[in-house]
């Protein structure tokens, strides 16, 4: 946290309150606005990929339809369920932080972390299977015997979209790990649980993006 400032006001400040805020509520609301603004940038970052997906699918409808049959929709559904449940545990972690139940906070953070790891594990199984089959992006695509041309474009987008999403999952895990450390040290209280809350917002956004990726990549009919 910021170093204590030598102003007269700082006597009245709680230790977690940064010097340029007047009161904890102001600091918490500013942090939330900041996080929502950041989430909007994430939406537009992925939005570019969704736009590219839409246009390339328009250009190659048959290739996309055929490409998706190489994906295992049950693994995709499993991962959807895993992420949805992890969103629930994250929401519960925020709730526990707000009510000051430290043990439950730690437990729910651990559960979220574990579910994120399961998600990445499933992704690893899927990726290694695709690598093995030569279902690689663009220029490196080496799968033989497709009935339609252009399936490599589907896999370009598949890898870019799920890859970028996977990186966000990893970033989320790092953040949750950091929260866990602070929670174990007793940094959070009903008066100050802001970091848990805004990290939660980030984690829900990662979930939300997967909610769209799942039908667009695994369920083309």
């Amino acid at each position: 946290m910021s170093t204590p400032q030598a102003t007269a006001e700082s006597q009245a400040h709680a230790p977690f309150l940064q010097h340029h805020f007047h009161e904890p509520v102001q600091q918490a609301e500013a942090a939330k606005i900041g996080m929502w603004l950041f989430l909007v940038t994430e939406i537009l970052l992925f939005g570019g990929l969704f736009t590219g997906y839409g246009i390339l699918r328009m250009l190659h409808p048959d290739a996309f339809h055929h490409g998706h049959t190489y994906l295992d929709r049950w693994l995709g559904a499993l991962n959807t369920v895993v992420l949805l449940v992890s969103s629930f545990t994250m929401a519960m972690a925020v709730h526990s932080a707000r009510t000051g139940e430290r043990k439950r906070l730690v437990r729910f953070l651990l559960a979220t972390l574990a579910l994120a790891a399961v998600f990445l594990g499933v992704k690893y199984v899927e990726y290694s299977h695709k690598f093995h089959e030569g279902l690689l992006p663009g220029r490196f695509y080496s799968h033989k015997g497709d009935p339609v041309p252009g399936v490599h474009m589907f896999f370009s987008l598949y890898f870019v979209m799920t890859g970028l999403h996977g990186l966000h999952v990893v970033a989320g895990m790092v953040t949750i790990g950091w929260l866990l450390r602070r929670a174990l040290r007793g940094h959070f209280s009903p008066a100050y649980y802001n970091p848990v809350e805004i990290a939660g917002l980030y984690w829900h956004l990662v979930d939300m993006i997967w909610i769209y990726l799942f039908p667009l990549l695994y369920l083309i009919s």
Binding site: P137, G138, R139, F140, G150, V160
Partner: peptide
């Protein structure tokens, strides 16, 4: 990685 999204040779735009 030659993903080809902007490459007309690979079917990109």
């Amino acid at each position: 990685f030659g993903v080809g999204i902007f490459d007309p040779k690979l079917g990109g735009d």
